[in-house]
Nucleic acid binder design. Structure first.
Lengths: 219, 219
DNA sequence: GACACCATACCGACTAGTTGGTATTGTATC
DNA sequence: GATACAATACCAACTAGTCGGTATGGTGTC
């Protein structure tokens, strides 16, 4: 491939980007199956020929959208202010507070594209499912270092695994999004985020020294 | 209407019931949009005419399936053994342990029908969304009495609202199901259930007396 | 019991519209 | 003219829902 002269990067509002951005909007609102190729073309102001010029299939677009989602959301969190805090626990709590701050508008605006697509793709399209998994678990992984540091700095009385707790934060958020969609009310998300915050605080609370009895084996 | 003689209740494996049971299976596996009316008829061994004899539309079926789901799962939890425990906290922990016990097989087998349908219906079909909401929040409500009693018996240092905590348990489960679908691995559900259990234990742990600082208002 | 009557359950071919995807053609840039 | 990109027309498969008609069985009357 030759990139000779000046403008070889596609113009910023390129067809491909417009389609991906439209897909994020529509899929978050309607889901993947209910979003047709024609919907996407109309929303992006693009012809069907252009669509299939850039993406071999709707499934390929879905994978690309999941990757696009990973990148754009990754950038938001990477540049967020909570990384600057000195105490690793404050960084974790800062992340949680940021998640709460991002709950604005409708469910379609604050919910997670990857979680939405997972439900529809997990049996019909391994490629899409894997892309969603990469987005969710990749994001969870960005919390691990801070959690590990917090555990090392202030070991909780109960055994806590950083990776597991990082995944749990994502489970809480994904589930809260579902409840918000069902109730048609964003408040339930804030509620669950508050419970998550309280859980993390309790885990690292110095008040806990007489160790809580380990969760008993179930019969 | 006259119901004179003997058999007026439809036969137990009735067409309607077969369709509802088939719908539970297919929708949990493929989602609502990806499940066609023909799929349902084939799975239930029923003709298309019979389908539309019993349900005016696919949407009506979806509502009926959500109600059916509420009833069948409601019966399972209503008859479970954890209600017999004397200590309300033990009943709550017993519920959580039961949820863990029910994680068997594939995601399509243990995940929640209402949560799955919510994602696809919340913008396109208020009727289905409301039926899903009734299922999820109705189930959450069955936990409230035990949580209230536990709070009354052993007030946590941090303020806890029973209804809010009950909803949070459902958020954790719903989110864990999504992560399990993404990872194609039921283990992540058990992980999050364990975190939920630990959160409840910590909340009610007598070790917490120097009150944890109240969650700060976000800027 | 024989009869007419009627309601419910059911069948499966059909339709109108939608879907993802293709074929063809046009155009701008090198 | 070669290459990348894009617009239009088009197709075969599929979809939810319809429709005319059948099967069964119960009810009331004689």
């Amino acid at each position: 491939m030759v990139l000779p002269t000046s403008t070889r990067t596609p113009p910023e509002g390129s067809t491909r980007t417009r389609l991906l951005d439209a897909a994020v909007r529509l899929v978050r609102a309607k889901g993947l199956n209910a979003t047709t190729v024609d919907d996407l073309c109309a929303a992006a102001g693009v012809s069907k020929g252009a669509f299939f010029h850039h993406f071999d299939s709707k499934e390929r677009l879905a994978v690309a959208v999941a990757d696009h989602w990973s990148q754009t959301t990754g950038a938001v969190f990477a540049s967020a202010g909570y990384h600057d805090k000195a105490d690793p626990l404050d960084r974790v709590l800062g992340y949680i507070d940021l998640r709460a701050d991002l709950i604005r508008g409708t469910a379609a605006e604050f919910s997670c594209l990857a979680g939405t697509m997972t439900q529809e793709a997990f049996e019909s399209s391994p490629a899409v499912r894997d892309a969603c998994a990469a987005s969710i678990f990749g994001h969870a992984a960005t919390l691990e270092a801070d959690l590990s540091a917090a555990i090392a700095a202030n070991p909780p009385a109960v055994t806590v695994n950083a990776a597991s707790l990082a995944r749990h934060t994502q489970a809480v958020l994904q589930g809260a999004f579902i409840l918000a969609k069902a109730a048609d009310d964003p408040a339930v998300v804030l509620e669950s985020i508050e419970h998550l915050r309280q859980y993390v605080q309790l885990l690292f609370s110095p008040a806990i020294h007489p160790p809580v009895p380990k969760a008993k084996k179930r019969p």
